[in-house]
Simulated assay, not measured.
Amino acid sequence: MAAQISSAGPVRIACVQMEPHIGDVAANRAATARFIETAARQGARLIVLPELCNSGYVFHSREEALALAEEIPAGDTCRLWCALAHRLRVYIVAGIAERDGTALYNAAVVIGPDGYVGKYRKLHLWNQENLHFSPGDLGVPVFDTPFGRVGVAVCYDGWFPEVYRMAALQGADLVCVPTNWVPMPDQPPGQHPMAVTLTMASAHSNALFIACADRVGIERGQPFIGGSVIVHCSGWPAAGPASRDDEAIVYADLDLSEARDQRRLTEFNQLLSDRRGDVYGDYQRLTK
């Protein structure tokens, strides 16, 4: 049953920036529990964890990825998160390697105080993810919570404006993004990473709150850039970006109902109703 949405005011959101270790599922699982406990003690009601935080990211082979993946929600990691969410009365959005029969997905799970809520499967696979995972097949689901409607994206999905727009058109107030951002070429010194810039632009152009939980560290030679950030529906950071190197938790107190008001830009302009579908037409055909 869908949760009753409330406009009771701010909710504290936490984005966990941590360093999973490839292959060490037990230690990764225990680390997520420690961070969830810490965030809950600080009053967080929605806690976002990074992409593939149960398994690590840089797999040598599909066989290794399959061995480290778990069923959703029957696997040990989801069962732990369900127990924590129930005891602490929090919601958790976390990236996880999902095994579904012989299929593998780079997924994210949504869990609440009453148990498993739903899942998302990453739509756009980055680089060698294509060797291990199948592209997501669940679309862009949006989930009801007591504090607003919540969508999910994972990492490279954020490079595609359609993902955030689809969430907004379904009434999402917030999109949670478990991510493993890597350096982009030609990054000017002193500037936000491109991922943060894209997140700010997407939040502004859709009037969405966006909460991104990144990882840090170097795994099998691949560096990750940190920078976890919570962006207000106006497009400006509400908390973060966090550092490039350190584990941390980023917090923001947000009233998600503001997203619905933010879409009204002027007396004459509303971000979603101003869309010119008559002009855009079949954009898939236009790009061929």
Rank of each mutant, 00 (worst) to 15 (best):
A14P: 06
A14I: 06
C15H: 00
C15V: 09
V16S: 00
V16L: 00
Q17V: 04
Q17E: 13
Q17N: 09
M18Q: 10
E19V: 01
E19Y: 00
P20G: 04
H21L: 07
H21C: 05
I22K: 12
G23A: 01
G23C: 02
D24T: 13
D24A: 09
D24Y: 12
V25N: 14
A26E: 14
A27W: 04
A27H: 05
N28I: 12
N28H: 12
R29W: 06
R29P: 08
R29L: 15
A30L: 09
A30K: 11
A31V: 07
T32D: 15
T32Y: 10
T32R: 14
A33E: 14
I36A: 11
I36P: 03
E37T: 09
E37N: 11
E37A: 15
T38F: 05
A39T: 11
A40N: 08
R41G: 08
R41S: 14
R41L: 13
Q42E: 14
Q42M: 15
Q42L: 07
G43W: 13
G43C: 07
A44Y: 13
R45F: 05
R45V: 14
R45L: 08
R45K: 15
L46P: 13
V48T: 06
V48R: 03
V48F: 04
V48M: 02
L49T: 03
L49C: 06
L52W: 02
L52A: 15
L52Q: 14
C53A: 14
C53G: 15
C53R: 10
C53H: 04
S55T: 14
G56L: 02
G56A: 11
F59D: 01
F59W: 01
H60I: 02
H60C: 13
H60P: 13
S61Q: 01
S61D: 02
R62Q: 08
R62G: 09
E63D: 08
E63P: 00
E64L: 10
A65N: 07
A65V: 07
A65S: 14
L66V: 03
A67L: 01
A67I: 01
L68V: 07
L68Q: 07
L68E: 10
A69D: 05
A69I: 02
E71M: 09
I72K: 05
I72T: 07
I72A: 04
P73E: 05
P73Q: 07
P73F: 07
A74G: 13
G75W: 05
G75Q: 07
D76N: 08
T77N: 11
C78L: 06
R79V: 07
W81V: 06
L84A: 05
L84W: 05
A85H: 11
A85M: 04
A85S: 10
A85I: 10
H86I: 00
R87I: 05
R87K: 07
L88K: 06
L88G: 04
R89H: 14
V90K: 07
V90I: 15
I92S: 11
V93L: 12
A94R: 00
A94T: 12
A97I: 10
E98F: 08
R99M: 07
R99F: 13
G101P: 01
T102Y: 01
